[in-house]
């Protein structure tokens, strides 16, 4: 597939997944409605959606806290700031996102914010110390791509959706367990509802994770297109893959934000080689991301990564 086709396919799949979320929410509401009362189903959904909106509003400051990203004066990181400006222009973004720094030796980067105007890109000091300019630019383009595609928005929504569904399922489950006489309907309906409430949170989690994996492919393709250089993106991914430092802020709730999953390495040790385990990853395997880029760009990555001074060292942003 060409990059253009990949982007189209990814968008379609994302739309299907979002549709799945809405469907799941409706099924839950119907279950509550059947088992108890229609009005209770409506109240549960309205309440949960209100909670979701509150979570959405609070999300921006929460991400910063969870990742440990620090605001830095633009003058202090001018060369980095310029790179971000350049990829934002190439992406056609109306504004250049702010840049924040995470003090962490593990090379990684993320994007956050609900709208391009309020978005920011976070990079670790480890990333600056590892990546030469060409690859750093690709990583930044990947993050800016997330912002342009509204992935940061979509993934926050998905996270909130998953939370909302878990909340409703929990309410439903408890109502059946402790509801006493308010129950309606036969045994079959109740059993169905019980199973539904138990499984719904997992279904939501799987949907969220598959959405997250889709968006990673899309951002890789977007970055390659923006820079007209699929090889740079692939090289950057390979370098991230080979680097085995794990991030201190490995936290499942923000795992989907990063360019390379900060938790997968921990998880894969824990889970062994279960084929099913890939369903629970926020990111597709590095190898398939690199292969997608190789196929689109028509090249093969060399075994040896190009050696050279890292951008951070070259511009005195970090110490070697």
């Amino acid at each position: 597939m060409t990059l253009q086709e990949q982007i189209r396919a990814n968008r379609l799949k994302s739309a299907i997944v979002v549709f799945g979320f809405v469907l799941l929410l409706l099924v839950l509401a119907a279950l509550i409605g059947f088992a108890f009362d229609i009005s209770l189903g409506v109240i549960a959904v309205v309440g949960a959606v209100a909670y979701g909106i509150f979570a959405l509003v609070r999300s921006r400051s929460m991400v910063s806290r969870l990742t440990g990203a620090q605001e830095v004066a633009p003058e202090a990181i001018r060369p980095l700031r310029r790179l971000v400006e350049n990829v934002s222009i190439a992406a056609g973004l109306p504004v250049t996102p702010e840049v924040r720094i995470v003090e962490d030796a593990a090379p990684n980067a993320f994007a956050a914010g609900l709208r391009p105007q309020t978005s920011y890109v976070g990079v670790t000091t480890g990333l600056l110390a590892t990546m030469p300019q060409r690859e750093l630019e690709a990583v930044l383009a990947h993050e800016v791509s997330h912002i342009r595609n509204r992935d940061t928005y979509l993934m926050t929504m998905a996270l909130v959706f998953a939370g909302v569904i878990a909340l409703i399922a929990d309410i439903g489950f408890r109502s059946i367990a402790y509801g006493g006489r308010s129950r309606r309907g036969g045994v079959i309906v109740l059993v169905l509802a019980l199973v539904g409430f138990l499984l719904a949170p997992y279904a939501a989690l799987l949907l969220r994770l598959s959405l997250s994996r889709r968006r990673e492919f899309l951002a890789d393709a977007g970055a390659a297109e923006m820079l007209n250089d699929p090889e740079a993106m692939a090289l950057a991914l390979r370098r991230l893959e080979r680097n085995s430092t794990t991030i201190a802020y490995a936290d499942a709730s923000t795992a989907h934000l990063w360019v390379e999953s900060p938790t997968d390495r921990l998880d894969s040790d824990r889970r062994g080689v279960l084929a099913l385990s890939s369903l629970f990853n926020t990111h597709p395997p590095m190898q398939s991301r690199i292969e997608a880029l190789e196929e689109a760009g028509g090249f093969r990555l060399p075994e040896e990564l190009p050696s050279g001074e890292s951008f951070g060292v070259e511009h005195g942003l970090v110490h070697a």
């Binding site: 310029r82 400006e85 350049n86 990829v87 222009i89 190439a90 056609g92 297109e225 923006m226």
Partner: peptide, 17 residues
């Protein structure tokens, strides 16, 4: 140098559109 980089970035976007 910075402006030249930005012109080429803007050019990539413009030509794509």
């Amino acid at each position: 140098t910075d402006t030249e980089d930005k012109i080429s970035a803007a050019r990539r976007y413009y030509n794509a559109t």
